[in-house]
Design a binder for these strands. Structure first.
Lengths: 169, 169
DNA sequence: CGGCATCCTTAGGGATACTG
DNA sequence: CAGTATCCCTAAGGATGCCG
């Protein structure tokens, strides 16, 4: 509570984040639908086949098919040939690098849901292989400092005026 | 490409992530609508008043009103009294801690959009106040290691069986 | 098994006009 | 300025059935 807002400048509302130029807005055009993120969740959980996507994401086949098609054409998934020994060649859905780099979005959503919406700690945990420690999403600057929300400035790319992010922690 | 999938176990599809128990799914119930994230984006950019939310997020007033109402009742925003000198008391919308902690989700979306959908680097940049270095979203384990997607294991909370996250980098 | 076709319902969202 | 009321359109998504 008690939002400590430290203005360090003024970010012009027309300074480039509204509507189409905004990367958040653009990202939402691609993954804005709920079903899209559920499909991606399954892809990160290791699902590769059509029927599994539909049933595990809890979607009807037509919806799953539509989303998978979009994800292919947006380059987040790709079809890959595989062959079970003694069977004919088939195809399954694999994450591309573009799709795989969405993982922090899902991880951040999961972390927030675990914190604010789950009874316990949430049913799925992320761990660092080898070290086995819990993995969290965090903000860190290029100098290596962990940054909390009170220390963030927003800068518009053009003007490089800065404004702080409202802090409510 | 060349997804190096290292299975380290088997995550039972019924092991707790499907449908309602899943924190991602729950989070999407709250912030799944496109307009909700646009409203939150504006809140992080410093918007506090109704008309600004509507116009800056590019939403019609009825939609903005509906989303703001939901965000209030979900506890992501709260109304706060304020008073401009010589004017009567008014209220504006402020992020609660619950809402503020969604910032990594927006930051991750922005980062992905900057990387894969923007022409240049994207119109808005995050910087660490003081240090002025660029701020990025990353995954880090409790032991302090930066974790890339190839080193992630998923563990179901109940069984603690582990499975790797498919890596496409 | 991996879809597509069809039909239907609901939710998201815009436009316009109006009120406190 | 901060909304609400109404109306309408489109997109998201489920159910069922069919097809290669």
């Amino acid at each position: 509570m008690d939002p400590a807002v430290h203005m360090t400048g003024a970010l012009d509302p027309r300074g480039g984040w509204v509507a189409e130029e905004c990367s958040i807005s653009r990202a939402l055009e691609v993954i804005g639908a709920r079903s899209t993120l559920l499909i991606l969740r399954e892809a990160f959980y290791g699902t590769t086949r059509f029927a599994d996507f539909a049933s595990r994401a809890g979607l009807s086949e037509p919806v799953a098919a539509a989303r998978l098609r979009e994800l292919l054409s947006d380059g987040l998934l790709e079809l890959q040939d595989y062959q079970d020994p003694g069977k004919r060649t088939r195809q399954d859905y694999r994450l591309t690098p573009k799709g795989a780099e969405l993982f922090p979005v899902l991880a951040a959503l999961m972390q927030w849901g675990d914190r604010w919406l789950a009874e316990s700690d949430g049913p799925v945990e992320l761990r660092h292989r080898g070290c086995e420690q819990h993995v969290a999403v965090q903000l860190r600057c290029a100098a290596g400092h962990e940054v909390d929300s009170g220390e963030l400035d927003l800068a518009s790319g053009a003007s490089h005026q800065a404004r702080s992010v409202p802090d409510a922690t």
